[in-house]
Design a protein around this nucleic acid. Structure first.
Lengths: 371, 371
DNA sequence: CTGTTAGCGCTTTCAC
DNA sequence: GTGAAAGCGCTAACAG
């Protein structure tokens, strides 16, 4: 998707561009006709006014005045004709589309559905349409998506769990497109951001393990370039600073996937004197941790206690009962959307706002005192 | 979202519209300026040709001829200027937007992420943008969403797990918008459809339970107005037809949610002589079934065997180990998208196509011989 | 308060 | 092969 300005099928199949002047596409076919669309002109005629007046009616929120009788005739005409303003035309003139872009890394992860849903509901509830992009956690693709959304003139973008932001944010900002970051903050506060308090949450989780009597506690963290993951790790370190040496507190870093957590956990447990508890930076990794325990014939929580972070739905299931920290994804999504829409509507503070939501410990059955 | 033709801020904050002529909104503010956008006119000037010629270059797939030298100059100009055709303008004239709508019931359900992801990847890979709508499984909202997408001139719509279709499909079809149904078929083949073989899958699951020695088998089904659910139930009935009376084969119907499955299962198990195995119409319900067992102090599979349908990710987890039937959501999504894009591009059969994918049994640890 | 007049950026006949 | 002109459906000054 590098050279966006290629022939009509701008966004042709990912396949190679082939030799110079290939001509594969046949967009030709059927000419979308359907029932004659009713336009603003039809409404104007039926109401006995001009398009301009109808437009003013449609944009009356802009503060146009209008004779009640005219207003009423237009209203009636619109209703009779079942008129719908064409969003494309509107977008073309106003350069605003009542559309919000949502960029996520990968919807399949246990963590997103709740977040995406809340964002979807919030945008839709405000009359905006949601455009979805999935980056696969690849910064390059993320930028492609952001560019594509910018060209489509979305009014704003929710960046969920961005990796790094410099390019994206710069690009959007230059084009006057509003931005909000959800669930992952960045080292610098470059845009409105809504996250959960990772540091406090991690401390609570680790303290819980200590309160149970654990002393050999390990940590499986996410990539440290991701700030919330770094914060969680730091929380782990702060709460274990007084404990013995590094040997007692092994830490690993893994991709935030089930497989990532599984592999890292195996490495951590398959040693002489394994830890009695592990704190994971995400529930997804913790689920992998559970698999690793099963792989090694260890029982949770008897042989090892497991704690995660996020509170994904499946953690509640019997047979899982994952002790975790609630990231309150739904509220994060909602609040992020609110912030974004506020900016889109022109209010909003001059400076970026950071909202850090409290993180609550949720104790279930995957943690218990060490043997 | 009923009256779409309301004032400009068609999608004002959910808050009340207040007294008659309130004037709260101030869209006024910042006038989205940004760096002067480069248009086809700029390209034309730089290349020393007219907009028309540039347009022909852009649409060369339509089969326009052009002098190689001109072609080259235009190509260079586009590159130098980093020109991107404005999709809105293009959409306005061509009445096609390289956009696909995706309508799901509720992304939060365990089943969707995989499906949505595959659709997302497939559309994006073909250069289309995905617009997401979530109906909450409410037919009225579903229609609202479909209408909104139609107004935005999406080229096609993927309807995932529609409930009933008459209105939606009629509406879209009238407007020449292509349609494909994924994961749920309808009694009548009204549009291209991709589903898994529910009947065969259900039979395989039930046969598996019988092979293990179960005779008192229950079924927790989804609403029978949903064809795949009806098929799964029918599969259950066919495979148990020779067994004792109805008392041995209780069946319940529930909403396809964890809670739905949980409640239904409790009802089924909390009796004199409970079944020794339960076949669920969906994994989501089966997870609820697992919770119900825990609630009642029953152990799976020792006291009761549990089998589901869909093969959601969490089913693999140790502690869950759900025996199920694979719905192959990813492939269903992919194939549905392919079918849709084919129609959008003007190929595609005259009549609707039905693709029924094979359903494969996946045996895990939630099923075992009865005691 | 309402109408006139220009476009927004692109496509598309129809000439040349 | 390329250009001129009209128009997609709407908004936005500016008049009156």
């Amino acid at each position: 998707m590098r050279d966006d300005a290629k022939p009509s099928d701008d966004g042709a199949p990912a396949a190679g561009d082939g030799p110079a002047g290939d001509g594969e596409v046949r967009r030709s076919g059927r000419v979308r006709t359907g029932p004659a669309r009713v336009t603003i002109k039809d409404v104007a005629e039926r109401a006995g006014v001009t398009k301009a007046t109808v437009s003013k009616y449609l944009n009356r929120a802009h503060g146009y005045a209008m004779a009640p009788s005219t207003r009423e005739r237009i209203r009636a005409a619109i209703q009779d004709l079942d008129f719908q303003p064409n969003p494309l035309a509107r977008g073309l003139t106003r350069s605003a589309t009542t559309t919000i872009g949502l960029v996520v890394a990968d919807i399949r992860s246990q963590f997103y559905p709740e977040l995406v849903h809340s964002i979807q509901v919030a945008t839709e509830g405000a009359g905006y349409t949601l455009v979805l992009g999935s980056s696969g956690d690849d910064p390059a693709r993320e930028l492609d998506i952001v560019r594509s959304m910018a060209h489509r003139r979305v009014d704003g973008v929710v960046l969920v769990a961005v990796r790094s932001a410099s390019d994206n944010i710069e690009y959007l900002r230059q084009r006057g497109i509003q931005i909000v970051l959800a669930s992952r903050d960045l080292p610098e506060l470059v845009a409105d951001t809504v996250v959960v308090d990772s540091l406090a949450g991690a401390r609570a989780a680790v303290r819980h393990l200590r309160d149970l009597g654990h002393r050999r506690i390990a940590h499986v963290g996410g990539e440290l370039t991701v700030k919330p993951f770094a914060d969680r790790r730091r929380g782990f370190e702060l709460e274990t600073a007084d404990l013995a040496g590094r040997a007692e507190l092994p830490a690993a870093t893994a991709a935030s996937t089930i497989e990532g957590g599984r592999a890292a956990t195996r490495g951590l447990l398959d040693v002489e004197r394994p830890p009695t508890a592990i704190f994971f930076a995400t529930d997804t990794m913790a689920l992998g941790g559970l698999m690793a325990c099963a792989d090694l014939g260890l029982e949770v929580p008897r042989d090892v206690s497991i704690a995660g972070f996020d509170n994904v739905t499946v953690g509640e299931l019997p047979g899982i009962g994952l002790t975790t920290v609630d990231s309150d994804a739904a509220r994060v999504g909602e609040q992020a959307t609110e912030l974004l829409l506020r900016r889109v509507l022109g209010s909003g503070d001059a400076d970026p706002v950071l909202i850090t939501r409290p993180a609550e410990l949720v104790v279930r059955t995957s943690t218990a005192p060490p043997r």
